[in-house]
């Protein structure tokens, strides 16, 4: 078998194993840790009978392995169970499935994240390459200072500064990003402007620092010196000699940062009251609505694992040594 197909298949297999183990971790964290959440959900006044009934209702009386199988089987069929907020008589009869809570929120989050990524990825790659090419110039130093500062500050600081100056003092953008399912696309974009901008600022700083480092590392390779000493023009050095070897590090940089993006989105959604999955998770954590927390954590983890897997595969496919075996 072609080694590249073999390596890719190996990675895919490894990815599946990782996903499986992650699902076990997420599931067993709930089962094994000493969280007395029945009481927390039902309140201090709960009688032992109601607690027992609640535990039976969510299946706590069955053995963990069986519960895991039921849970993961449901996940695979797209059934994530029921939210606690409707269980145990608290929700007053109206049962809400986790899927019905998570899916619309997930769509919103994906919209915001892609919006930010669409701007951030090209921008930071371009800036990173420029900084690498004009290394040690005033531009490079300035960019280094700005990005170092930017990666150091909390997301909510940037978010509130933008909100204060670009929405409150100068009312250019919407200060809150409260969209609903029937918000038209243009208005949706306008409402998402500030959260997207915050995410872009955070991601660009990270991503361009890494791009710069990757490109500088590449340009220090002996084969680049060889090309220079052959009299190859600078443009050709970049496009013919550096770029074909740059895909792997660049893919890695993008994957790391997109993974970072899905974490950063949690805080930004809360600041701008954006109805995404991050905010849903935070609310559910406060309410100790475990099925929703589990589902959201699973969604985040799966995205994270898949992004890393994708970067892995890109760097394998882009590796000339693997691409053309001996």
């Amino acid at each position: 078998m072609n080694p590249i197909v073999k390596t890719v298949l190996q990675r895919l297999g490894l990815g599946l194993v990782t996903l499986f183990v992650v699902s076990i971790v997420i599931f067993s964290a709930v089962t094994l840790l000493p969280g007395d959440f029945a009481t927390a959900i039902l309140g201090q006044s709960a009688t032992p009978e109601t607690v027992a009934a609640f535990q039976r209702q969510i299946g706590l009386d069955r053995p963990p392995v069986l519960r895991y199988l039921v849970w993961i089987g449901g996940v695979l069929r797209g059934d994530l169970g029921e939210s606690f907020s409707s269980a145990g008589g608290l929700g007053g009869g109206h049962v809400r499935t986790v899927v019905s809570l998570v899916v619309p929120r997930l769509k919103n989050t994906l919209f915001l994240a892609s919006f930010a990524a669409l701007i951030a990825v090209p921008l930071s790659l371009a800036l990173g390459m420029l900084a690498a090419l004009y290394r040690n110039s005033v531009f490079d130093r300035l960019v280094n200072l700005v990005t170092l500062t930017s990666i150091s500050v909390p997301e909510f600081f940037i978010a509130y500064i933008l909100m204060l100056f670009l929405a409150v003092r100068l009312p250019i953008f919407y200060s809150l990003a409260n969209v609903s399912a029937d918000t038209p696309l243009l208005e949706r974009i306008a409402r998402c402007a500030l959260p997207a901008m915050t995410l872009v600022l955070v991601i660009v700083a990270h991503m361009m620092r890494m791009t710069r480092a990757a490109i500088i590392n590449l340009l220090a390779s002996p084969y680049i010196e060889t090309a220079r000493l052959k009299g190859v023009t600078p443009g050709r050095i970049i496009f013919r000699h550096a770029l074909p070897n740059a895909w792997a590090p660049i893919a890695t940089v993008i994957a790391i940062n997109l993974a970072y993006l899905i974490v950063g989105v949690v805080v930004v959604e809360v600041v701008f009251v954006y109805p995404g999955i991050g905010q849903l998770m935070v609310d559910s954590v406060s309410a100790r609505d475990i099925p929703v927390v589990q589902a959201s954590a699973l969604v985040f983890a799966v995205t994270y694992v898949l992004l890393n897997l994708l970067a892995d595969i890109v760097s394998i496919v882009a590796n000339p040594r693997l691409l053309r075996p001996r």
Binding site: A29, I290, V293
Partner: peptide
């Protein structure tokens, strides 16, 4: 977040 929601 997940762990905090469980152990408080």
């Amino acid at each position: 977040l997940m762990l905090l929601s469980i152990v408080g």
